[in-house]
Nucleic acid binder design. Structure first.
Length: 386
RNA sequence: GGGGGAGUGCCAGAGCGGUCAAAUGGAUCAGACUGUAAAUCUGACGGCUAUGCCUACGCAGGUUCGAAUCCUGCCUCCCCCA
């Protein structure tokens, strides 16, 4: 039987999980994810993979979509109050989160709950929950200490968060709760809440936070250094190729559960990319993404499939002339000012030949059927007839 | 209840009457280089069929030849004391 604590940073209280496993019954293992952004990224999958391990070992996984707590905002690891998404955004995200999570978890064997089920409670019940702790206890957490030291605001709402998350554990009668290391306070706090409600406190396990593609800060959507599990194969492969070599061992260990193979870093990184693309897009997708990557970035060639753009809509006022800035803007979803700048920078190519800054208008016949390219990665084929 | 401070571009953050489409850093995009969409270096980075025009520094007015910068009101936020 595989060691369920592999890669874990904290498993608390000491020895508790081992005792629970000794009991021989399926444990209820909880993970909560707030649908605050649209996509789950590889950072989230570190914990999801661990959850899948529990699942494969026969335990009952309880995935909580925090549609209610998303409105509160988890202060974990935050130096400022989290902006609260609109109800519509939360709803939309909540729907896609489940599908994304099931790229890793076994749908049939996962209990999915939304915490609005029980957190949308009567005010009296909420007061009862609030009575279970003290402000001093809530302020203990590192995030708040830092903010107070820096005279940064702490929203009263944020104080509530650990209580609500803890109540989730009560509602689903969790035996074990997983989370990133930044969740340690919340996870431990859940034990207190469970105790207050007469339940046997859960044990907790924290897992490392995956570093982002910049190799420095944690992977997060807002930092733009993430790889989303729904990213297109070549996007995913490309982003993975851009991680610093030093980050590779960690990616191997946390995402693939193995050591980085020996040999040239380039080979190892390509393997990492292929394997992860395969995982999220099915077998063979990794190799295909690598092919495309090679074409574009190594051979500087045009990919097989590129979109077509009709030219007629971008004719200049006169007749057979096409105004390039407008064409570029429309073809690649930019502004025409950006189109001009790109032309000036020599970033726009027609069949691989740079188009200079002048002239701005070209004969439509000289463009028809040719490949327009902006930078290294954006291509389209031009057609005179729509 | 009292006192102090802040609202600027995608984010952070300078500017505090003209030379400000607004320093600097991050993000982003492009060029060079490269095993790489890394690192590094260079450049760009509101919009517009464009040597000019339009929009923009919380909102609304006002002073001035001229305002992000001064004044008035309003809105929002933060800190400290109680």
């Amino acid at each position: 039987m595989p060691d369920l604590t592999r890669n874990a940073v904290d498993v608390l209280p000491a020895g508790r999980l081992a005792e629970q496993l000794e009991e021989g019954r399926p444990l209820r293992v909880k993970l909560g994810i707030d649908p605050t952004t649209a996509d789950i990224h590889l950072g989230h999958t570190v914990v999801l993979e661990k959850l899948a391990e529990f699942q494969r070992a026969g335990h009952q996984v309880v995935l909580i979509v925090g549609d209610f707590t998303a409105q509160v905002g988890d202060p974990s690891g935050r130096s400022a109050t989290r902006p609260v998404p609109s109800a519509e955004e939360i709803e939309a995200n909540a729907a896609t989160y489940q599908d994304q999570a099931f790229k890793i978890l076994d749908r049939e064997r996962t209990e999915v709950r939304r915490n609005s089920e029980w957190l949308r409670m009567e005010p009296e019940a909420l007061l009862g929950l609030l009575a279970q702790t003290t402000v001093a206890r809530l302020l203990e957490r590192d995030d708040f200490q830092k903010r107070m030291a820096a005279s940064q605001p702490i929203a009263a709402l944020e104080l509530l968060y650990p209580l609500l998350q803890g109540y989730d554990s009560v509602a689903v009668e969790a035996d074990v709760e997983l989370g990133g290391t930044d969740q340690k306070f919340n996870l431990l706090f859940g034990r207190d809440v469970q105790g207050a409600y007469g339940q046997k406190p859960q044990s907790i396990m924290t897992l490392p936070i995956l570093v982002g593609t910049d190799g420095g800060r944690k992977m997060s959507k807002s930092l733009g250094n993430y790889v989303g599990v729904t990213d297109a194969p070549e996007e995913m492969f490309g982003r993975l190729m851009s991680i610093p070599d030093e980050a590779m061992p960690e990616y191997y260990r946390l995402l693939l559960g193995s050591e980085q193979p020996g040999g040239p870093p380039n080979q190892a990184k390509r393997e990492l990319g292929r394997r992860l693309v395969d995982r999220f897009h099915g077998g063979g997708a990794g190799a295909a993404a690598e092919d495309r990557f090679n074409r574009i970035h190594v051979q500087h060639a045009v990919p097989d499939e590129i979109p077509e753009v009709g030219l007629d809509a971008y004719r200049a006022d006169g007749n057979g002339l096409v105004h390039l800035p407008r064409l570029i803007a429309a073809a690649f979803d930019l502004s025409s000012s950006e189109g001009r700048r790109l032309l000036q920078q020599g970033a726009v190519k027609l069949d691989g030949e740079p188009l200079g800054a002048e002239p701005l208008d070209r004969e439509i016949d000289s463009l028809d059927g040719h490949v327009l390219q902006v930078g290294k990665r954006r291509f389209c084929r031009l057609r005179a007839t729509p």
